[in-house]
Design a protein around this nucleic acid. Sequence first.
DNA 1: ATGGTAGGTCTCCTA
Length: 262
Amino acid sequence: MSFTIATWNINSVRLRAGLVARLMREEAPDILCLQECKSPVEKIPAEIFAPLGYTHMLARGEKGYNGVAILSKLPITEAGAEDFAGLGHARHIAGRLENGVTIHNFYVPAGGDVPDREANAKFGQKLDYLAAMRDRFRLEAPAKSILVGDLNIAPREDDVWSHQQLLKVVSHTPEEVERLSEVMEAGDWCDITRRDIPEGQLYSWWSYRARDWEAVDRGRRLDHVWASPDIASAAHSSRILRAARGWEKPSDHAPVFASFDL
DNA sequence: ATGGTAGGTCTCCTA
């Protein structure tokens, strides 16, 4: 069995339902994981996605914040939605395919502006969230599992436009990068995107605030596809659809893809 | 050094 999975921080699934439909028509991933849906589950426009073949939906939502959804052409059943670090936010949902593969879809807290948990509670929440993810995967080593989402951390020097200039910017601080590597080591996860594309600058997010995001190209790789070690070798063809950042009324994130032959 | 844009919502909070 082969399938393609994509992860995309959509920044309002209702405002950008048309862009989701465009991605479904033009790229047709079998499974599309969304973050920042910013919608209660019952107001997600599933009726737009079902006619395009995405007849299965798993989701957690809140009124104006967070929210995660898995839209799938393949049958998928819910395999839990966990409240890491007890924040009470809709930041995780898991599903299981008929072949037994588990898919974790995460929206890790952004962490505010100041990288100091004393001065900024949101940064502390981000670190706590990552510690809870780490503990979860230490407790139960993931098998036949894929982890995707907006992890809000760009771990490598070539995952940001300037390593030096971002060392004290939330998303690329050494403390966050260390926490993310602890999550990865706890589950023995493989960073599929970087295994497939090991060289060169690679970004999945460009700020709305840049005057000309494409020319300036000050991006960060915040969105990730990981696999457990038993299925990592089945993954291939990773890519980031940078063009989607240039669509009309775009999300500030581009979708990240990987395919699996299982 | 600063401010820049975007979305959602009981007008400011979050990213």
